[in-house]
């Protein structure tokens, strides 16, 4: 089985044009790969650039230097230089992403928010809703909330909708940005189960988990992001 994702020598900085163009280096020399059926965890303190790495891998942040090679559609593609259209195709088929916060859409019910990624991949709407119901039930989201738009939900409820939305598809690569941050113990366990199921299905997972217990439970490998701090490279 080919390695689904290889990151080599990636660097990222922000140029703040509104502040006289000062350049804030975030990370550099990032090199690692993730393997199918494993959960790799990015470790390191806040501000070390963990989220930035995930966002670059999802095409959400631009990449200054380096390559991100993704196995997509039976070929290898450099995500760092791919066209927007290709990035969209990779998101649709290859890389899934569970963000830290749910970006709510007005008037769309929680159930449809969860079902949407499947519908976008061409799944029948009713079948997608069936899967969405099963996931929301597994995550203990009260059924009376399913038909409501999640904008007014509590942080924990929104997060569970977000997790369901991320886990519903069968992307071979799944990025997790602190999916358990605002969950209680019971639901954290559900997420651990979901991750275990994904691993068993051969999905390559890459995540950020601040919760020590969760990290212990899911991590096959921990990559210390402090190694990619910009100063280190210069040194």
């Amino acid at each position: 089985m080919p390695t689904p994702l290889v990151v080599s020598d990636v660097a990222k900085s922000f140029t703040m044009h509104l502040r006289d163009g000062i350049k804030l280096p975030v990370i550099s020399g990032v090199s690692f790969s993730i393997r199918a059926g494993e959960c790799t965890v990015l470790g390191g303190p806040s501000g070390a650039g963990k989220s930035s790495i995930l966002k670059m891998l999802y095409g959400n942040y631009a990449v200054d230097e380096g390559q991100i090679i993704v196995t997509h559609d039976d070929g290898l593609i450099d995500l760092a230089t791919a066209s927007p259209r290709t990035v969209l195709a990779i998101r649709r088929q290859t890389i899934g992403y569970v963000s830290q916060f749910l970006r709510t859409v007005p008037r769309v019910s929680a159930l449809d928010v969860v079902a949407e990624p499947l519908v976008e991949r061409g799944e029948d709407r009713e079948i997608a809703r069936g899967k969405a119901r099963a996931l929301l039930a597994q995550l203990n989201l009260p059924e009376r909330l399913w038909a409501l738009p999640p904008a007014t939900f509590s942080g924990g409820e929104q997060q569970r909708v977000n997790i369901a939305r991320g886990f519903i598809t069968e992307h071979p690569i799944l990025l997790l940005d602190e999916p358990t941050a605002s969950l209680d113990a019971r639901n954290r366990d559900v997420v651990i189960e979901l991750i275990a199921a994904k691993k068993a299905a051969g999905v390559a997972l890459l995540g950020i988990f601040h919760d020590h217990d969760v990290r212990e439970a899911v991590a096959d490998r921990i990559i210390d992001v402090t190694a990619f701090a910009p100063g280190k490279i210069a040194a």
């Binding site: 044009h17 163009g21 966002k55 095409g59 959400n60 942040y61 631009a62 927007p84 990035v87």
Partner: peptide, 12 residues
């Protein structure tokens, strides 16, 4: 990409 431009805007 819309989210890239909005989350990581490059041009001043």
């Amino acid at each position: 990409l819309t989210d890239r431009v909005l989350d990581d805007p490059r041009a001043p």
